[in-house]
Design a binder for these strands. Structure first.
Lengths: 251, 251
DNA sequence: CTAATTAGCGTAACTCATACGCAGTAAGGG
DNA sequence: CCCTTACTGCGTATGAGTTACGCTAATTAG
């Protein structure tokens, strides 16, 4: 009665729906502990440092003990991907959709920036955990007064998530690469210049000639600008869509 | 004279700039062979099947032989990421920028769809290989008649790449998950319905009530529609940007 | 008290990436 | 024609990773 047919195992775990058992020793470990330890480890040393052995060590348990609580390492990664994004701040009251979505996007970005390994996780399904769904709900809520159909809202939000996801991955990867060897990046323009043949890649050659890639310095800042630039373009498109859909011209 | 200071090693490899040596045995293996074998393997069995041992086996060589041609496995992955995307078809002559970018995007999508592991590669830098740069050049070329500054073009193209990249990753991951267990996906709406509390996630609950997630069947097709929807929104934004920038109002 | 149930863990099998050094091979110099 | 030189391929070994399996001990239901 409390549990109808079959929820996928990971989903149930994320929502804390375990069947409570009475017999046997009290567990000294909980899934939450494990996930928390794994996240701390990833924060400190990167996602590649997250091995079952290291997580167990951090908890003072043996490696195999973890498998009593988690089906596999991939399972653990899925749990991490939901737990890492804390619930979003509620949208300010009475703001228009555009302000709302901008606020939402900024929130995603700061949330993800706390866990730089996030973009390296192998995602394998649509959002299903409580935190991820809260973010989804928040974005949908920002569109509540637009008059869009539910389907339209979902389309807009999925496009936004796609863009944000892409930007996160791109910028995090670049930032990581930049941290690894700053030289290769500051010379990016120079490297390209030596390799690009203006006959074959004329448009790119012109960009290089204009020196656009010469001033690459850090990444955490330039990102911000690029990110916002693309975001505003997308939101402009959304604005057009809303107008077209909800206020048909009275021609 | 033929080789000035220091090109990053991977970049040189991608462009086939090896210093030719005369002495010693003729190599029985080339970087190209290795990369091709690795790509075939990834196409057939997924990126996780790509290990140095498996690639070498496929070539009839020993594992360690590969390291004569490739610095590390990561190096090999970088080479794969450039080699996997064959050069783009040239843009049709005389098309406007919007048609051009749509064409370009479709090209990226079909190119990537041939290698479904592509989105799982750990990218660690801006594009530098011949194929990747050809794609970049092609997109920039589509904007040649817009009157945008070089910097503006780069911004627009980077935003587009970000969106496409995000979409690719999302859709490929979903498709993979769908292939793994179709059940969980066809029940996605039902699963959410059981877990979403309308008090806490009201906007999401409404979407569910409208049945938006009920008709999830395949993914390769619905993707197309979602993808195009978001893309057109972004291009709408670009159109506004071009107008604003290049044809200032005569108020 | 007994039986059922479950947590933690030790062992071991397997797959990986890769450092290191040796052996053999082909070209250049005499 | 032979030796030097530089380079290729490969065998071995190390250390790290995931995880199947089965044992032991703890805990509670009856």
């Amino acid at each position: 009665m409390s549990k109808q047919p079959e929820l996928p195992a990971d989903v149930a775990l994320m929502w804390g729906l375990r069947d409570v058992t009475k017999r046997g020793p009290k567990p000294s470990l909980s899934v939450e502990d494990i996930v928390r330890a794994a996240i701390e480890l990833a924060d400190a040393e990167g996602i590649t440092a997250v091995s079952m052995a290291r997580v167990a060590e951090r908890l003072g348990n043996s490696t195999m003990a973890l498998y009593r609580h988690v089906k596999s390492k991939d399972d653990l990664l899925v749990l991490m991907s939901d737990a890492a994004l804390e619930r979003p701040d509620p949208l300010p009251d009475g703001v228009d959709w555009r302000t709302g979505l901008t606020f939402w996007t900024a929130g995603v970005l700061t949330a993800v920036r706390k866990h730089r390994w996030y973009s390296k996780l192998p995602i394998s399904g649509p959002p299903a955990g409580p935190n991820n769904l809260a973010w989804l709900d928040s974005a949908l809520g920002a569109l509540k007064d637009t008059g869009l159909s539910e389907e339209g809202k979902v389309g807009v939000v999925m496009g936004l998530m796609t863009y944000v996801q892409g930007e996160i991955r791109l910028s995090m990867d670049l930032a990581a690469g930049f941290a690894d060897n700053p030289d290769a990046f500051s010379r990016y323009g120079a490297t390209l210049a030596r390799v690009v043949d203006p006959r074959q890649l004329p448009a790119l050659a012109e960009v290089l000639a204009a020196g656009v890639f010469d001033e690459v310095e850090s990444f955490d800042e330039t990102d911000e600008a690029d990110f916002d630039f693309g975001l505003q373009l997308y939101l402009d498109g959304v604005a057009g869509f809303i107008e077209r859909t909800c206020q048909p011209d009275v021609t």
